[in-house]
Design a binder for these strands. Sequence first.
DNA 1: TTGAAAGCGCTAACAA
DNA 2: TTGTTAGCGCTTTCAA
Lengths: 345, 345
Amino acid sequence: MKYEAAKLKDISKALGLSVSTISRALHDSHEISEATKKMVRDYAESINYRPNPIAVSLREKRTRSIGVIIAEIANSFFSQIINGIESVAFIKGYNVIITQSLESYERELNNINFLASHSVDGCLITVSTETSNYDHITKLYKNGFPVVFFDRVVEEIKTHKISIDNFKGAYDATTELIKCGFKRIAMLANAEHLSITQERLAGYKKALTDAGCAVDNSLIKYCRHGGMIYEEVEQSMNEAMQLSNTPDAFFAASDKLTTNFVRYCTAKKIKIPDELGLIGFSNLDLTDLLVPSLSVIRQPAFEMGRIATELLIKTIEARRPIVDFERKILQPELLIRESSKKRKK
Amino acid sequence: MKYEAAKLKDISKALGLSVSTISRALHDSHEISEATKKMVRDYAESINYRPNPIAVSLREKRTRSIGVIIAEIANSFFSQIINGIESVAFIKGYNVIITQSLESYERELNNINFLASHSVDGCLITVSTETSNYDHITKLYKNGFPVVFFDRVVEEIKTHKISIDNFKGAYDATTELIKCGFKRIAMLANAEHLSITQERLAGYKKALTDAGCAVDNSLIKYCRHGGMIYEEVEQSMNEAMQLSNTPDAFFAASDKLTTNFVRYCTAKKIKIPDELGLIGFSNLDLTDLLVPSLSVIRQPAFEMGRIATELLIKTIEARRPIVDFERKILQPELLIRESSKKRKK
DNA sequence: TTGAAAGCGCTAACAA
DNA sequence: TTGTTAGCGCTTTCAA
């Protein structure tokens, strides 16, 4: 079954003009008479002619589309980023091809290879939790394929990067928990090697030491899939809650870790914040409707998508290779609600 | 800045063979000797050769990709559908291009025109709430462009359609509210002309009349953007709550209507279910964590995406035009939790 | 078993 | 102002 669309040749035959004249007329070239242009345009309109983007891409060696690799669409943080990406891509006339790694290195590899093999002009990437080898990205970048990192960036690769101030987000959250009177603050962390994990971990530790609290490594629980799988959060929580000196609050370092923390507490009938305080990263719209409402670190996700896309398109459209790469850091926002408010006993 | 990938010609030059021999060798043609094949394959591998998908598409008049038009990525129901779509597309070797209408007819038109102009081999569509004229889709379909509708289907167009049993979902939800003792059950509905709205409305009405309750049209509130905008829900709710005989429960007919209903009640300090009972359509993972936990109608979204994609790929790969179109109806699931449990006073 | 050449739909350099 | 032609990277028919 095939769909036969009109092509230049069809118009050319119908009007008795050459294909190049049609092409030029449709591109409003100055070397075509107004009369011809009008005739061509009217006819093209009447048969609903659309240039074949595949042919144009082949010719122009560009697709006017950009690729995106995110971890998971079903995650508010990423879907808000996508909205930011689309908002500028739309204006600039680029199409967006979204792919998900689902936190799998293999899928990421697959996606990036597809995208880079001339399917898109450039790529926006946040690496999967499983990714610790970056050869597949380095190779592209060395070949001149434009890549911009967002959120989970790779320091070794020199290109535009945009992330949020993860250190500050973590520092402020932890400090707030300390101020609220929590004594043993645990951290539910994402995969250990990720840039965001390291930065958030550093912020968490600094806040503790600045407040004169000791850092207890048994209170730091890594979740290899970033909390995407409930069972890993459950296991981490079980381990933490079985310590001789159990934590009295948690700092959850990602969207999914935060919601799965709440799910765990609900399942185990652990009262937030009385038994366990919580501040977590989350971009979910509903966190203020939970009971208790969640104190969260909210990331400017839409903004991040917007800026990343602007940088990527700038790179794609640059005449000469970019040497001066930008490193943008956006500020997170700490929204203090009930889950971090320790009640006096 | 451009990215130069290896092409057949490069291999041809390097090995002193013709381009056609290289092409055949890489396709494992029987007319090429094993020795040549091995040499070509090894060399291609060594330089990491990938065929240019644009050139292949132009040649083969197919792109091995499918397009998707959904309302909004940042909506659990749709993001779950996307996961279903990707799961089968991935296996069948198709790429997925996702576009959002954001409930705008203009954007939908834009997206579908882009996708249909040879960018993809076929399309999965759920129409926007604003769409009431279907000429743009009819035109494509008449030209033989494969289209499969899911969720919000268009009856006038003869093609594969997959949706859930909206009548039953609404009927069961309303009946449950009646059984729980609610007397004046209002409906928060999506845009009036949508297929899903009509079906859910019919189920709601039938449940009322079957139970001997009168249908009161002042209790049916349409939201043109399907609840995507909080203000429209707020206005509808305000109107409903100012009636002389206010409702004591709501049936919310979409994901966003359900969550924005909760948002409204929280803002106005209306207690669910004591002051207002609720059952709503929702595929959000978190509805069981809200207090009270929400009684919801859950749709098999992943499944819907999966089946829609299978039907689309079947259509794309069919040798002859399809005349027998399928109409699949999936069953929703009613999860009864606390928001619909009227307490004795 | 291999090569030459045409053609997919489009644009643009060169001719007229 | 318009037409002719080459070529983007690939597959495939026809010829050798």
